[in-house]
């Protein structure tokens, strides 16, 4: 589904992704871990087309389509979803309006008609239940005045509404209390199908107790330096990153 090859990208003259490779197939969950500042969020931003990055090499194909050449909204319309590490607030735009606009733009790109109001409300109710969102949420402005945990849950709600092919969750677990963590993980698990895939960026093994990944990758200095199954996450939790850094530097 996703093929990233030798991706090199930087910002403000500084190279951050230094030949990143990753292949994700339908039905898989990949976890990416790694020390602060190694380029995990940068990867999500570059894949989804945030402005300001210089891409010097490599490619990223989603179902055979080169993402790096598309506008950010086109990538989203193709089914790429990024759950932001720091979701922004959009004053004056209600969650309902925002979600409807989003769904309709994606439908439009596929030549489909806008969603009907009853259909939309039904879907919204169902998905709000999934992430245990309060009712007044519908009319509130996107993320405005939301607590940190509510913002993260809102990202999952949006993901559930849009039903993307490939979702990148950037530290969605950070700042969540135990209940919220369970809610978020539950949400993701319920959305897993053989046709979609997830990349989960996290610092904590505990999320991976709930969402069991097929692969765990360690990212360091702009690259994946080690891959394994979920036991790798346990090992990292126990030993930290120093041994990996040493391994890399020994090369």
């Amino acid at each position: 589904m996703l093929k990233i090859k030798n991706l090199k990208a930087g910002i403000a003259g500084k190279e951050i992704l230094k030949g990143f490779n990753l292949e994700v197939n339908a039905g898989e969950v990949h976890a990416i871990m790694g020390p602060n500042g190694t380029g995990k969020s940068t990867l999500g931003n570059v894949l989804s087309g945030k402005e300001g990055y210089e891409i010097s090499d490599g490619s990223a194909l989603l179902n055979g389509v080169e993402l790096l050449e598309l506008a950010p909204e086109e990538r989203a319309q193709l089914g790429l979803f990024l759950a932001f590490q720091y979701p922004v607030e959009i004053p004056g735009v209600s969650n309902a309006n925002f979600l409807k606009a989003s769904i309709n733009e994606i439908r439009k790109s596929k030549g489909q008609n806008p969603i009907s109001a009853p259909e939309f409300l039904k879907l919204l109710r169902e998905k709000m239940e999934l992430v245990e969102m309060q009712k007044d949420f519908i009319s509130r402005s996107v993320n405005v005045g939301f607590s940190g945990g509510e913002k993260k849950r809102n990202e999952i709600l949006q993901m559930a509404m849009l039903n993307p092919q490939l979702s990148i969750l950037d530290e969605t677990d950070s700042g969540l209390d135990i209940d919220a963590l369970r809610i978020v993980a539950n949400g993701v698990n319920k959305l897993r199908t053989p046709d979609n895939a997830f990349i989960i960026i996290t610092h904590y093994q505990r999320l991976l107790d709930y969402i069991v990944p097929d692969f765990v990758h360690v990212m360091y200095d702009g690259r994946i330096v080690k891959s394994g199954d979920k036991s790798l996450a346990l090992e990292l939790e126990e030993k930290g990153y120093d041994w990996i850094k040493e391994e890399v530097e020994a090369l």
């Binding site: 989804s48 945030k50 402005e51 925002f98």
Partner: peptide, 13 residues
């Protein structure tokens, strides 16, 4: 810019 990017990432130009 961040707000615009957020919207774009949700498919809204």
């Amino acid at each position: 810019e961040d707000i615009l990017f957020y919207c774009q990432q949700r498919g809204i130009d």
